[in-house]
Every structure is written in structure tokens, then in C-alpha cells.
Design a protein around this nucleic acid. Structure first.
Lengths: 163, 163
DNA sequence: ACCTACCGGTTGACGTGTCAATGATGCTAA
DNA sequence: TTAGCATCATTGACACGTCAACCGGTAGGT
């Protein structure tokens, strides 16, 4: 975990073919996993994972409402992405937007009853799908190691910055 | 078969909060990793990973050409996705399409010189990015385990079928 | 007071992906 | 022969994401 990598590996610049094969397996399989979960959620509740993230955040907020920028920060989205997504969710009646009384120029996002209901109906199947597709696929030990790998990748990405 | 896995874990239906935290870390970090690699490739060569996959397949094909459906099967895409993507790549001059002489109604996809050149220029930086962003983030052991985890997830997804 | 610079949010253009419908063309069975 | 039928590829409609431009308003500095 601490060893300086290029030196320890002889200053190689390119991955070996084994590393490359693992990379492809890893990245393609995780993508397939996301997309499978996405379609489960879609079938079970007609929500996308984006919808789910927004509804989850609003459900947990007091008054079932949040400022748009706070919501974006909370779920880690860019403002423009959130704005587009909220437009689509508003058309479907899942949320409403209104001018914020306290902050001028601020927009308040509110959960509608229909949105709250859709979220309630989606939660259980979604969590069950996570168990079936991810947790059940791995041994308890592999689950832990998956967490460590994710953490290591995250640290490395953050260290490289550049974004 | 209905009881097999839950039984081993006491019939739980939902993931524990630890499992859920690991799931989120895992899926979000792998998504971030893909997207970082995507933007590296974009900056280094003005290609997307989709472009890269297509150009790689064509480069390795004899005559730098493939039937559209063979190409789709080779890289694991739906036909419609490939057709849309080829349209965009054709507009940029990376590939050409022509009626296939041997198979009626078949379309032959050819690599253009510009496409070949773009692929040549992209390969080295792309592989280097895979090393920097993935291989270097992990210990050699973690890389192996990542491969095992991917394999286990893949097997499980395939076993569940449903798509 | 005025100019500027930022801040919060929206918009438009475009690349990308899925699904369902549509041509166009062969193969097969009545 | 001809009525289906499968196959190969494209198309259109739409959801989703990013980037860059924009807009309205507040805050500082002069």
C-alpha cells in the first residue's frame, strides 16, 4: 500500500497484459453491474438511479425540501446536471421548484406527494437488488476487500487531482 | 434455489449499513475511475472510449475492415448503438462505410488513414493512463483480488440472466 | 453612485445510450 | 409462386451528461 510504485515495478510505463485483462474485466463488469441495477430500478419503480438519489436526499431533508445548490453538493452533481434533471422530474410531477423566500435568487426544491410515494415504493426493491446483485455475488471477505479497493482507488484519484 | 443464499446469511433480505456503504463507495468510485479515464483519453487524443473500442477492433481486423454486425458482436454493443456511433465517427472522418460485396445487405466498416492515425496516437497515453489510474493505485495483490471480484460479479450476473 | 466581479441557477448545443419501429433482403414452407 | 419470417442495418424519439454561455442580482472597491 505504501510502496512507490513505478520504482518497485522497474519504471514500467505500460500495464502488463495480465494487468490489462484485469482492468478490462473490472471496468466492464462494474459497468454491467450498474446498468443491471439501473434497469432493475426502472422495472420495479419507473425511477432512474438519478431520480432515486434526488428523492433520497429530499426525503431526508427537513420539510422535504432543499436549496438547489445544497442538493447538488449533497449528491455530488454539477449544477447544470441537476437543473436538467430537476426539469425532467418536475415534468413527471416528482418534485416542484419555487423561489426561495430567504435567499434571493435561490431556488427551493420540494418533494411532492407523488415523489414521496414513488420513493417509498422504490426503496425496498432497490436495496434488495443491491443485495442480490452485489452482496450475494461475493463472499463476506470479498465484500470487505472490495471496500478497500474502492478506498484505495478513491485516495489515488483524489491525490492525482486534475479535475 | 429461492432460499439458497439468504439462508446462508440468516434470511436477511436487505444489505446491512456496512454493506450499503461499501456498495456506494465501490460503485461511485468505479464510475469516477471510468470517467477520469474517459477525460484523459479525450484530452490526449480527442477520442472517446467508444471511439477507441471501435478503432482498436478495426485496427486488429484484416484489411482494417469488418462487417458491422461482426464489429458489434466483437465489442459487445447493440447494433443500434453501433450504428449511431459509426454515424458520428464517419462525420469526423475516422471510418467509412460501404456496401459489402460478399454479403448482400451487409455493411462493411473501414478504417480511414485519419482513423488509423488517431488510434496510433491514442494507444500509448491510454495504456499509460490505465497504469496510472488503476494499476498504480493498488498493490499487486489488490490488483489480483480486483480481478477475482470482477470474475465473481460477472459469474453472478450471468447466472441471474434476465437480460 | 458606478463599475466590476462573483454567485446561483438556467439554457442550448451536442455526444452518448436505449427502445421500438422501419426498410430492405434473403429463406422457407404452403 | 408467394406469403410469411428471420436477418442486417438504420432511424427517430427520448433520457441522460458535459461544456460553455448566459442572466439576474448582490457585494466590493474606487
Amino acid at each position: 500500500m505504501t510502496e512507490a510504485t513505478p520504482a518497485r515495478r522497474g519504471g514500467r510505463q505500460l500495464p502488463t497484459s495480465d494487468e490489462l485483462r484485469i482492468w478490462r474485466d473490472f471496468i466492464e463488469t462494474t459497468a454491467a453491474l450498474s446498468s443491471r441495477l439501473e434497469s432493475r430500478l426502472q422495472n420495479d419503480s419507473s425511477l432512474s438511479t438519478g431520480d432515486y438519489a434526488v428523492l433520497l436526499a429530499l426525503s431526508e431533508a427537513e420539510g422535504q425540501a432543499m436549496r438547489s445548490s445544497a442538493l447538488a453538493a449533497h449528491i455530488g452533481w454539477e449544477r447544470s446536471r441537476l437543473s436538467h434533471h430537476l426539469g425532467r422530474m418536475e415534468r413527471r410531477g416528482l418534485i416542484r421548484r419555487q423561489e426561495c423566500a430567504t435567499v434571493p435568487r435561490g431556488a427551493e426544491v420540494l418533494l411532492t406527494p407523488a415523489g414521496a410515494e414513488a420513493f417509498r415504493g422504490a426503496t425496498f426493491p432497490h436495496l434488495r437488488a443491491i443485495r442480490e446483485l452485489f452482496v450475494d455475488a461475493l463472499t463476506p471477505d470479498q465484500v470487505l476487500v472490495a471496500g478497500e479497493i474502492a478506498a484505495a482507488l478513491r485516495v489515488h484519484l483524489d491525490a492525482l487531482g486534475e479535475k
